[in-house]
Amino acid sequence: MKKNEETFYLVRGDFLPEAMRKTLVVKELLERGKVESIFEGAKQTGLSRSAFYKYRDAVFPFQAMQQTRIITLFFHLEDRSGTLSTLLATVAEAGGNILTIHQTIPIHGKANVTISLNIENITVELDTLISRLKQQDFIDRVEILSSGA
């Protein structure tokens, strides 16, 4: 396996470490509005906030990933001419349909970009698309913020 390769696996829940299972519970509590904050959810489940932040972008319920065709990605990138258009072109070449774009004003030569896209018709695996995006020299970080319809 390549270093930093994002490959997705289907793992039975009882094989997951307790911290990952609790992270899923906190995410569900937040999604359903049963708790108002990560702090409150972590306290309720007996999970440390650091463990939640460690696993939040790494574990997802199978049903959510199976039914989801819309994802939200967060990018931290350099403020250079053409970076946003290159990012959008990479997503479009993979068949992603961009639904929303939000870009912050660059500070110290860096900007944050959040895009929501429909991945129903992508022609590559999601982990391949994310890997391609991470290979762009102007992108410092890519995160999956959410996956929901």
Rank of each mutant, 00 (worst) to 15 (best):
T114Y: 02
K134Q: 12
S85M: 08
K110C: 05
G95F: 13
T90S: 13
A92G: 12
F39Q: 04
F138D: 13
R12N: 10
R49C: 10
R69K: 15
L29H: 11
R56S: 14
T45M: 15
V26G: 14
N4W: 08
G96L: 05
G41K: 11
I38W: 06
T123V: 12
L87F: 03
L73T: 02
M65V: 15
K27N: 04
N97D: 11
E6P: 06
P61E: 07
T114N: 04
H76C: 05
E5M: 04
D127I: 01
Q67V: 01
M65H: 01
Q136D: 06
V59T: 07
S85T: 14
T86V: 05
E36N: 12
L24E: 03
Q44K: 15
L88V: 13
T68E: 01
L29K: 11
T68V: 02
K54E: 06
T68M: 01
S50A: 15
N97E: 06
I115G: 00
G13L: 07
E125H: 14
Q63N: 05
N121M: 03
E18R: 09
I70T: 04
K134P: 02
D137P: 15
L99R: 08
G41L: 09
T83N: 10
L10A: 09
G13N: 05
I101T: 11
K2T: 05
R69Y: 09
V113N: 02
E5V: 08
Q63L: 09
H102W: 00
S131V: 00
A19T: 11
R80Y: 07
I107P: 00
T100W: 00
T100I: 00
T86S: 13
R132A: 04
K22T: 08
L16S: 06
K43S: 07
I139E: 04
Q136A: 05
E40V: 01
F60T: 05
S81I: 13
K2E: 07
